[in-house]
Design a protein around this nucleic acid. Sequence first.
RNA 1: GGCCCGUUGGUCAAGAGGCUAAGACACCGCCCUUUCACGGCGGUAACGGGAGUUCGAUUCUCCCACGGGUCACCA
Length: 499
Amino acid sequence: MELDMKYFEEMEAKIPKGKVRTRFAPSPTGYMHVGNLRTALYTWLIARNAGGTFILRIEDTDQGRLVEGATDVIYRTMAQCGLTHDEGPDVGGPVAPYIQSQRRDTYGKYAELLISKGGAYRCFCGKDETEPADPKEIQKHVCDCPKLTDAEIAEKIASGASYVIRQKIPQKGTTTFHDASFGDITVENSELDDQILLKSDGLPTYNFANVIDDHLMGITHVVRGSEYLSSAPKYNLLYESFGWDVPTYIHCSPVMRDAQHKMSKRHGDPSYEDLMNEGYLTEAVLNYVALLGWSPKGALAEREFFTLSELAEAFDIAGISKSPAVFDIAKLRWMNSEYMKKLPPEVFFEKAEPILREAIPNPAINLKTVAALVQSRCEILTDLPGRVDFLAKLPDYDVALYVHKKSKTTLENSLAALEACVPVLENLTDWTNESLYAALTELAAKLEVKNSIVLWPLRVAVSGKESTPGGATDLCALLGKEESLRRIADGIARLKAAQ
RNA sequence: GGCCCGUUGGUCAAGAGGCUAAGACACCGCCCUUUCACGGCGGUAACGGGAGUUCGAUUCUCCCACGGGUCACCA
């Protein structure tokens, strides 16, 4: 088989050199899980930290698993997160194409090149479906195909026999692989299998496509999940056979759902999109995910709030953790609430308005005021309806709410307080929070009771809830005079019925 | 099962031979207060086990246990 050496020279000539180049290479499954997002983030951060280039490559060599619209999810997620790529299928670049299914010829040619260098061989064995007698036995492919002569191979091909190309692993010795966070890992070559590089459909396997593309795209740092750690030594052998430089590998341990399970779609763990739909803020998710498996060193060690660009500046490979990290939704909620509080009120209102409008159809209620009241009291946007729905309609509630130990309220004094409120409020002309507060504290003073004796029952009467976004006067101001008085009357009725 | 990797409080984690073993979330308590929240203050809680090396091990070595990963014409 003749090799077109000029092709390889041209390909080599296109490889950008001298700068850090990283790539995020998802396979389009239509789902960006949290672990994936973290890998993308770290990869992006390494590039940005070094002033390098970040590349998006789509790994779609498995024709059986293509999912419609899946690449759109990837583009959309990356864009929303601000993880901008410098090269990729949609923006092009010096080493295009960036979609593996469009690079089919390249893999075939490089597989041939590898054969000529003695690092691979054609195997005509067909699918290996033999069940090992002992299931505990190591399943390694062993056959006589490597011994086939050129003539025999030509004959088989001419007769239409299908074949795969397998990596030829040395029988003896050891291979040492270096990972930036795990260090040196040495394995016996006898443990390694002659893995398939090129499938019988002519498309490469993940392991082969990766090596070829990473080299041809000039990738300097490869970030990937630790599930690939055990196949990494084979990569070294591949690079060695080709005579190429090995990039820096950074394997990341998985993001777990609990101590023994990875986050997974099957178990209903949230993807990035799910988190967005649940009302989390992208910035909070990125911040949280960045710290799940990485922590800053030195002066920044105590810091926990980072913007994307601050992360890019602070990020270092040495801070990546080797052990798996459990995804803690409670901490994400907390972090999200911190981000919510920091949002400028206009921005918060913009995000909250549609949700508030749906929960409170009543046009008389000022949603801006509601938003201001609720901004510091919700962890995620989807908490909102449950916190404000009482404004639309007074819920049925238990009079026990009127009894509050700390405020020293009882059913009896609550009733008295509400009844005392009525004339005061009826006569109040300026229906604002300030005037309400002034009038009601004046009432409490006149009755010679603590403010809470008046305000607690009032808040319960107008809200019917144990917890509300604001105090009694905030709520009255929001509800308006008529509705407030109506609810107070309702409360009085409930209390009387309970006496 | 073979091979590889990992193991600091419930969770995320700092630490890199000598420290009262940080910090954050969660939890609990107190204060503030017009509820909850916010805020402030404080508290409970950890180096998986066993041998070494060393004057001294959470930090180094080995063994064990546990957990994870991997052993596909999937990535």
